[in-house]
Write a protein that binds this DNA or RNA. Structure first.
Length: 573
RNA sequence: AGCGGGGUAGGGCAGCCAGGUUAGCCCGCCGGGCUCAUAACCCGGAGGUCGGAGGUUCAAAUCCUCCCCCCGCUACCA
């Protein structure tokens, strides 16, 4: 650890009104949280920021559909989003909102500077306009017939039925997806960003990022080398969102893609002012080249974070660039792609109704889609939680503590002369801490989780070998050693399982919050004679019955999808 | 269509970039052991020749070529 290390961690900003599902947790919020918690334990100065993305055009349209203002819609959902993250122990230092004045100010300052530096110009483009709703419609909100095969209900520029590509304006019998009336094509002048001049600079920035995940690095390089960057429009005509600070930009806002990325900066400023109590403190992060910025996202966000975001930051010139963009693939559900509209999804708020946050965190880390898409399967969930988290980890902790409590008088015994096995066990826990550290530093969270389980498993083996229940002569030493292992295990698992780690500390009567833990505590020794509290099992086993209920619930929600429905009886159930 | 990722025992994965011990790990399964512990824990075993076909090499899961399958991206949803 470098003394005074500073780390800025971001997780993708969720759309204000879209609830978060399991894939979001596994793909962005949890890995970022594990990383942030670990870095804090290492003594780094960490700020982990996130917030709701509230200025998307889809939010404007969703609000219209519901007969609300965008503000009302966002106000309704913000506390819901925030609560889910809190319950899951996602340790944001700030969960901000891009509708806050500070964000508007950041965006304004940012684009004023780009304007001054000559990166902005205007150009007229054609867009769909709904005369009834009186708004410009993104392609996605215009539906019609595919010009190639005549399939109805298509939108955008690709037909999902025949797979052919076409220009958005070629669509036959276009309809506004809100009101059903016929939209017209209107010319509109927008402001463009000269991204084309930045290709080489972004490439130069990416070149030495060979330590990024393979897919992330290759994809980014290939994109830049083969296509390069094209200029892109950065304004839209809405009444909701940060106003475009350009001369002649009347009633125009900064386009969502070009403004929500800056939400990381504004969230940090929000934190500085309202959490840290020093409005200038954000500068120590965004304006300090020694700070490492880690962005955690899902693969759908790759282009924005590895190419556009660096391009924007380079154009502006003052801010640091991402040191690592940690990109995860997707988590599918029972072998099928998620579909929120069809109800084929596992919502976090639903999981929380029934399961401990650490159980959810455990499974999310265990099946994190770090290299490829993975599958959430209810039966696998029960199996992994029951046999790994409970059988290996939970049982180890519980058997050691309960033995100490009931057979050793509730105190950590005085050890005798340790043999080589005892010493080996004590030094192994330190090796495990080092291994885990390496994995987390490399953002290999799944491998890291395995290290935690391996330590518990090795502790179990040691205990079986020493059999303190039948070797009273050695029991004192063995239990002394085992209590140290349990403590180390709690320490190193705290980034993954914060609630559980806290409970272990409590059972061990350590009077310590996990937020006070240092990574080096994994090597510490609790003195003999220390009294512990009566332990309880850490987790409750998941039963077949409740898994069946969950699967039934999923099926009950599933609408009009005979293919998946059939699979329910043959495979999933 | 182009580009990128993936295709390794029943399931889930690592190894591949820097080619070379009997291809590792977890779950499950089978057989033992133990009884402190949430029928938990420990030990051992069966099971794969690494998507397919060629090629390079003394040697390839690892490099090259072609093909097949899955996933994603291709910038006016962000």
């Amino acid at each position: 650890m470098k003394l005074g290390e500073k780390v800025l961690v971001t997780a993708a900003l969720p759309y204000s009104y879209a609830p978060r599902h399991f894939g979001h947790l596994a793909g962005a919020y949890l890995p970022a949280d594990i990383f942030a918690r670990f870095k804090r334990m290492k003594g780094a100065e960490v700020v982990y920021v996130c917030g709701t993305d509230e200025n998307a055009s889809s939010i404007v349209i969703e609000a219209m559909k519901r007969g609300m203002t965008p503000k009302e819609l966002c106000d309704m959902y913000y506390p819901i989003q925030k609560e889910v993250f809190e319950k899951l122990g996602i340790s944001f230092d700030i969960f901000s909102r891009t509708s806050k004045p500070i964000h508007y100010q950041v965006v304004k300052e940012f684009y004023q500077k780009l304007w001054e530096k000559g990166y902005i110009y205007s150009k007229t483009i054609k867009q769909w306009w709904c005369p009834n709703c009186k708004i410009f419609l993104p392609d996605r909100f215009v539906t019609g017939m595919c010009p190639k095969c005549g399939a109805p209900g298509q939108y955008g520029d690709v037909c999902e039925v025949c797979g052919s590509w076409y220009e958005s304006f070629e669509i036959i019998d276009p309809r506004c997806s809100l009101c059903g009336s016929k939209p017209e094509i209107r010319d509109k002048t927008h402001f463009f960003l000269k991204l084309s001049t930045l290709t080489d600079k972004v490439l130069e920035y990416i070149r030495d990022k060979k330590f990024w995940r393979r897919a992330t690095y290759n994809k980014t390089i290939a994109w830049l080398e083969k296509e390069g960057l094209r200029d892109k429009d950065i304004t839209r005509d809405y009444e909701w969102g940060p106003p475009a600070p350009f001369p002649g930009a009347v009633d125009q806002v900064i386009y969502n893609w070009a403004e929500n990325l800056l939400g990381y900066i504004s969230a940090t400023r929000d934190w500085a002012e309202n959490v840290a109590g020093d409005p200038e403190r954000w500068k120590g992060f965004w304006l300090d080249n020694g700070v490492k910025l880690y962005c955690f996202i899902g693969k759908d966000n790759l282009f924005f974070h590895t190419i556009l975001f660096p391009a924007l930051l380079i154009a502006h010139g003052d801010y640091i660039l991402p040191y690592n963009v940690v990109v995860n693939e997707f988590v599918n559900l029972e072998g099928e792609k998620l579909s929120t509209s069809r109800g084929w999804v596992v919502w976090l708020h639903e999981l929380l109704e029934r399961y401990d946050p650490d159980v959810i965190r455990y499974y999310a880390a265990a099946i994190a889609p770090e290299a490829k898409d993975t599958d959430f399967k209810w039966h696998d969930f029960a199996e992994k939680v029951n046999s790994e988290l409970i059988g290996t980890y939970g049982n180890f902790v519980h058997r050691v503590l309960s033995f100490t409590y009931s057979k050793m008088g509730g105190t950590i015994p005085q050890p005798g002369e340790p043999d080589h096995r005892d010493e080996e066990m004590l030094s192994r826990r330190i090796e495990y801490a080092r291994m885990l550290e390496e994995h987390i530093e490399a953002c290999e969270f799944k491998k890291g989780l395995r290290v935690i389980l391996d330590l518990a498993q090795e502790g179990n083996a040691y205990m079986n070998e020493k059999a303190p229940w039948s070797n009273p002569g050695n029991a004192g030493t063995a239990i002394y050693v085992l209590c140290q292992v349990v403590y180390s295990l709690a320490v190193i698992s705290a980034p993954y399982l914060p609630f559980t780690a806290q409970r272990v500390l409590d059972y061990m009567n350590l009077d310590k919050r996990i937020s006070e833990l240092k990574w080096s505590d994994a090597e510490a020794l609790i003195p003999a004679g220390h009294r512990i509290n009566e332990p309880q099992p850490l987790f409750r086993k998941i039963t077949n019955e409740e898994i069946k209920e969950q699967v039934e619930r999923l099926r009950g929600r599933l609408k009009n999808n005979s293919r998946i429905s059939e699979r329910f009886y043959s495979e999933i159930l």
